[in-house]
Design a protein around this nucleic acid. Structure first.
Lengths: 224, 224
DNA sequence: AAATTAAACGGACCCCGGTCCGGATTGCCT
DNA sequence: AGGCAATCCGGACCGGGGTCCGTTTAATTT
């Protein structure tokens, strides 16, 4: 129910993929022309599939989202699911796309401290906290949507967040290897880690939050 | 060929699991009694399976290590593979166990700066570098052996390394949340990240190494 | 040595992710 | 309207991970 009911509104303005898959094109937001626009039946089926997946998650959890089940629930063939979303990860990612775009909009153009206007370090702090809680909310889905080891760090949505962190870092530490530091910071926000710490180790979110602020402090601290 | 030829020597003194799987019991090394000791046929088959897997990796890469293929190559039934190693991850982990034990022996009892005797921060630096290069050597296997998102951070071998980092950190930063900091440091050494940075981004190992040293500096730096 | 029991074996079986391709639709163009 | 090409659909098909259970075999006991 966390993700329920947002699909119904986003079909018309929610075209997407072309060749094999529809990648969540974070970053190029305002576009308006670059996208191929699906055929009518394809768009209809896409919407049905997302709704079906949402329903299945609500009923049986993320584990119940089997490609066949989604296809059946949506009343389409299995091949259609794969044509549209590429693979299971793609489908699950599409389910998260809505919230991902919101987050991105917030830190790209929203009010400070998350958005522009605040000092970079403050934005960094706010960013981490925002991601932390967003992830905790959708933990099961985020976990299930995680690609295999070889693609995890190359995944577009992760790259988008990391790029933002890199930019903020560079404004604070112009001489450091901000790409590596950004990877480190992002690693702290890995859904799998958050899952481990909260559910398997029983840490409260407040501790994770403090941990993030402390980490940002340490990483951005001037040399002694 | 990286991992070839070490199994032949470790069958007799390489007992292991009991119930469903054989977990790599890092940490409790000297034991000598705690282990159930396999039945003769089971031990023989275990050895055969590890050899078979090694052979398959050499020929077809880690992707070629299919449970059925290993079973066939070893001349046993598929069920036997699962009984012995639990799942694919377990089998692949067993293949890495040898090197994991070596590393652990080195930082628990080897010469400084990796082993005891050097200042904690120096040990930390050496530890990261050692893990970095060990991982790079076995990258394909390490990648393939990575468990799914829900178990990645709970995996015994990862825990063992992390515990060590936690201890070293605590000696340096008695008042910090060393568990979280250890997670952060370990995340930098994630095989999937190393794979991404070296193969997908084309970074040289020297840069990763510098990055580790820098990270340790920042994390362990006194407050300003 | 025979009997007993716990453990190991093996392969048939199930499920699911992913592929493929002949056939049906859609959107465009005349 | 009618025709055409591009796109999409759907379900049969494949391969691999993981499970199950009747059978076999190793260790132990008498």
């Amino acid at each position: 129910m966390l993700y329920a009911g947002f699909m119904s509104t986003l079909l018309p303005p929610f075209p997407q993929p072309q060749e094999p898959v529809d990648k969540p094109q974070l970053l190029e937001v305002g576009s308006g022309a670059g996208e191929p626009c699906l055929r009518a039946d394809a768009a209809r089926n896409r919407a049905r599939l997302l709704e079906a997946a949402t329903r299945l998650i609500a009923e049986h959890g993320a584990a119940g989202v089997t490609m066949e089940a989604v296809a059946a629930e949506a009343g389409v063939g299995k091949g259609t699911v794969f044509r549209r979303f590429g693979d299971r990860t793609g489908l699950l990612t599409a389910l998260l796309d809505h919230s991902a775009r919101n987050l991105q909009a917030d830190f790209l153009g929203g009010p400070p401290p998350l958005g522009p206007g605040a000092p970079p370090v403050d934005r960094l702090r706010a960013f981490g906290v925002a991601v932390l809680y967003r992830t905790a909310e959708q933990l099961d889905l985020q976990l299930a949507a995680q690609p295999d080891a070889a693609r995890r760090y190359a995944h577009p949505s992760v790259r988008a967040l990391r790029t933002h962190v890199t930019v903020l870092l560079r404004q604070t530490l112009p001489d450091a290897d901000c790409e590596l530091l950004a990877q480190t910071l992002m690693a702290y926000l890995d859904p799998a880690l958050i899952n481990h710490l909260t559910r398997q180790c029983g840490m409260p979110m407040e501790r994770l939050e403090k941990g993030w602020l402390d980490l940002v402090d340490r990483v951005t601290r001037a040399e002694t």
